[in-house]
Every structure is written in C-alpha cells, then in structure tokens.
Computed example of a mutant assay.
Amino acid sequence: MTIDALCQSVIEKLDTAHQGRQLVALSGAPGSGKSTLSAPLAKALTARGLKAEVVPMDGFHLDNRLLQTRGLLARKGAPETFDLDGFMRLCQALKQADHVIYPAFDRERDIAIAGAAEVGPDCRVAVIEGNYLLFDAPGWRDVAALWDVSIRLEVSSQELEARLIQRWLVHGLDHAAAVARAQGNDLANARAIDAARLPADLIWRAASAFET
C-alpha cells in the first residue's frame, strides 16, 4: 500500500462533513515506523483538504526520576511507564477544544517537556501515534474508543529487531548494549502489544522502506 492509498482509505472512513476534529490512531510496536509514517500521512490528508497534524503519545512518558522511584526505569516504554490519565485527557481535549497544548518528548535528552507542542483550531484531523493505542488492557481500551479511524502497523519480528538495534546504535550505544536494550525491553513491549490487540480499521504492513 502507498501513502496515497492509505490516505484515501482513511478519508473513506472519516466523516468528512463533521465540523469537529477527528482522531486517527497510528498504532504499532516500538520501531514499527509510526513516526516515519505519521508525517507523510498528515501531509497527504492536508493536501486532500483535511488539515492534519501529528500528535505523538511520547510526551506522556513518566519522568525518569519517577520511574526510578517505582523501579520501572529499565522498563521505560512499557504501558505502566506512561501517564495514561494525562493522555486520555489530551485525546478528549482534542475532540472538544479548538486549541490544545500538550507535552512533547525530547528523545536526545530522554525527557518529556510540558507545554511544548500545540494543535490549533484549523486542524481537522489529529494523527495520533503511539505504541498502545490499540491495546486491550484496562484504561487503554477506553482511549481506543475515541478513535475515528485506527491503523495498526505490522512488521516482521526480524525486521523489527533490526530496526530497534539500529535505533540504539544511532543513540550511541555499542552493539552489545543496543542488542540488550532491544531484546530486553523493546521486543518485550512488542510482544505485549501483539498479545493484546484490539481490532484496527486499517493495516499497514511495513517493508524495509515505505512505498511512495
């Protein structure tokens, strides 16, 4: 599937006569390509007359100090290491309010920054990307009820592992540490996501590179 085809499928499932903002969920495991896909999808929707902006879930990572206190720092990225209530409030606000300010995640510094991003009143579609947007677990399944359209990214386990190792190499880990980080935490989260899937409206089966 190409970006244009995905965009058309999304539009067909949206209520284009709806005057409020609609939410498109882009869900998948760590390293599945959510950030890579979300921007061109938002651009394609905007080109079709539906002004769209990307809203990452990553701004709701709990702070490392809080994770350390809870003994969860090594599991950062697992469902219990996010501010689920805060994320739910954001999604509800995106449905109800014209102008919404929300936290963004600085990956280089590994911290969430409050009030660092915003969605304006001209945005008709928020493309929300995150790991647990279609996660069948208490709390998370309540968030999933807010999606107007949901998309799940699917990647083979071999490709996913290669991407995750490369991610940590880029962030400065040596090869052994990158493999340990990918296998010890990221792939564990990927397996949890796979084991507790909610249905998706659309499936994007990712290859090593996106079609254009």
Rank of each mutant, 00 (worst) to 15 (best):
K13C: 05
K13E: 10
L14F: 12
L14H: 10
L14E: 06
L14A: 08
D15F: 07
D15P: 08
D15G: 07
D15E: 13
T16H: 11
T16M: 12
T16S: 14
A17N: 10
A17T: 15
A17Q: 14
A17E: 15
H18N: 12
Q19V: 07
Q19P: 08
G20M: 07
G20C: 11
R21T: 03
Q22V: 08
Q22K: 12
Q22D: 13
Q22H: 08
L23T: 09
L23H: 10
V24I: 07
V24T: 00
A25D: 01
A25V: 03
A25S: 15
L26N: 11
L26W: 08
L26Y: 08
S27R: 09
S27M: 10
S27A: 15
G28V: 01
G28P: 03
G28E: 04
P30C: 09
P30R: 10
P30W: 08
G31H: 08
G31Q: 01
S32T: 07
S32N: 05
S32D: 09
G33R: 04
K34E: 01
K34P: 04
K34R: 06
S35F: 09
S35R: 09
T36W: 01
T36V: 01
L37P: 01
L37R: 04
L37K: 04
S38H: 09
A39K: 13
P40M: 00
P40Q: 00
P40H: 00
P40L: 00
A42L: 08
A42H: 00
A42T: 01
K43Y: 06
K43H: 15
K43G: 13
K43T: 15
K43N: 15
L45F: 06
L45T: 06
L45R: 02
L45Q: 07
L45S: 05
T46H: 05
T46V: 03
T46L: 05
A47Q: 04
A47W: 02
A47Y: 02
R48W: 09
R48L: 14
G49D: 14
G49M: 11
G49S: 09
G49T: 13
L50D: 10
K51G: 02
K51P: 15
K51T: 14
K51Y: 14
K51W: 10
A52H: 04
A52F: 06
A52N: 07
E53C: 10
E53K: 10
E53Y: 08
E53R: 14
V54Q: 11
V54G: 09
V54K: 13
V55D: 02
V55Y: 02
V55F: 03
V55N: 00
V55L: 07
V55A: 10
V55S: 06
M57F: 02
M57V: 06
D58I: 02
D58A: 07
D58V: 04
G59Q: 13
G59K: 13
G59F: 14
G59M: 15
F60D: 04
F60P: 00
F60M: 00
H61P: 07
H61D: 03
L62C: 09
L62A: 10
L62K: 13
L62G: 04
L62W: 08
D63N: 07
N64A: 12
N64H: 01
R65P: 04
R65H: 14
R65M: 11
L66F: 05
L66D: 11
L66C: 06
